[in-house]
């Protein structure tokens, strides 16, 4: 075991002002303000090993960003303990900054009026890296991450995909041991998303960087991560390997058939009719209750024109976990 992140019983609440409707409500809130406490993160614990690519996912407002912000020293925790590379972010924020990199998909860290080259040099200086080392690093990045085309174009003139690529590269200038990526592919088209995923994979492979990723994009999770932590309402609801997640939750199969003749089929043990358009049928088979062959026996195999058997999409699995269904 070689944990780079250790989180124990971590909690964080926010005090939010409650205001009644309208002008009277505004007056009341001045005279006697009311507050409510929102538990953003509630008693969560997990560890991350060196070199892992981990997906930290959950619906909006689940507490993902709050957790990342506590891990990176942006927010203070109310209770529990955090150790990132053996450092407590609340006590040694500056020391931790040398060890980690962050990319927030919704927040730019680069100076938009400067070129990526100037930005990288500025970031190098922030991390006290000698100029000749920064120059060498930039050359290396240009080659590995294919930046030569736009390295001298002001960031404001770059496409969103190019900008995110530069954001990620800038966060690598000090060779962080852990990279926190908060929705890095938000708003990107499928081709650019694929580029970013390749970049993340390469980073993990070339520099052995541990990746802590949050994303609403199932593609990111499926293609990059070997382990997934699902958080909902501030609590960890699942912490498992992607393999186990699929194994345990993929007991349901979808059968889509096109028949020569109309079939009359009703729900039965382990079989749910999802769609029945006479000649076209869509069934969900729970393989824990009935086998695929049993389900197929209910259909006349001579009359099948076409058949497709697939897994339930990961997106549906995750949605069900969010909803608390298993």
């Amino acid at each position: 075991m070689n944990n780079v992140i250790e989180v124990k019983k971590l909690s964080k609440s926010f005090k939010v002002k409650v205001k009644e409707k309208g002008f009277i409500g505004s007056l009341k809130s001045i005279v006697k303000p009311k507050y409510k406490t929102i538990k953003a993160v509630n008693n969560i614990s997990f560890n991350v090993e060196k070199g892992e690519i981990i997906a930290f996912i959950g619906p909006n407002g689940a507490g993902k960003s709050t957790t990342i912000k506590m891990l990176t020293g942006i927010l203070y925790n109310d209770a529990g303990s955090i150790s990132v590379m053996g450092i407590d972010p609340t006590k040694k924020r500056k020391k931790l900054a040398y060890e980690i990199g962050t990319v927030f998909g919704q927040k730019e860290q680069l100076w938009t009026h400067l070129t990526p080259y100037d930005n990288f040099k500025f970031f190098g200086a922030i991390y006290d890296i000698p100029e000749y080392v920064v120059e060498k690093k930039i050359k290396e990045f240009i080659e590995i991450f294919e930046l030569s085309e736009f390295i001298n174009t002001p960031v404001r003139n770059l496409s969103l995909g190019q900008r995110i690529r530069c954001e990620i590269v800038a966060s690598l200038i000090h060779e962080p041991k852990i990279l926190f990526l908060d929705e890095p592919t938000i708003g990107l088209d499928p081709v650019v998303k694929e580029n970013i995923r390749t970049l993340i994979k390469r980073m993990n492979k070339e520099y052995k960087t541990t990746i802590f990723l949050t994303s609403h994009d199932v593609g990111d999770i499926e293609k990059l991560c070997k382990r997934v932590i699902i958080i909902n309402k501030g609590e960890v609801v699942l912490d498992d390997s992607m393999e186990n997640l699929k194994y345990h939750y993929l007991n349901k199969k979808i059968i889509e058939v096109k028949m020569k003749e109309k079939v009359n089929l009703d729900d039965s043990k382990g079989i749910t009719i999802l769609k029945d358009k006479g000649y076209n049928l869509k069934l969900e088979v729970d393989t824990k209750k009935t086998s695929i062959s049993e389900a197929l026996k209910k259909l006349d195999s001579d009359k099948i024109i076409d058949i497709n058997i697939s897994n339930v999409p990961l997106e549906s699995i995750i949605t069900n976990i969010y909803k608390g269904e298993k």
Partner: peptide
Amino acid sequence: LKKYSSGNLMSARV
């Protein structure tokens, strides 16, 4: 700073 609550607004550094 200990009271800082961050935020999720989209932002750019210009």
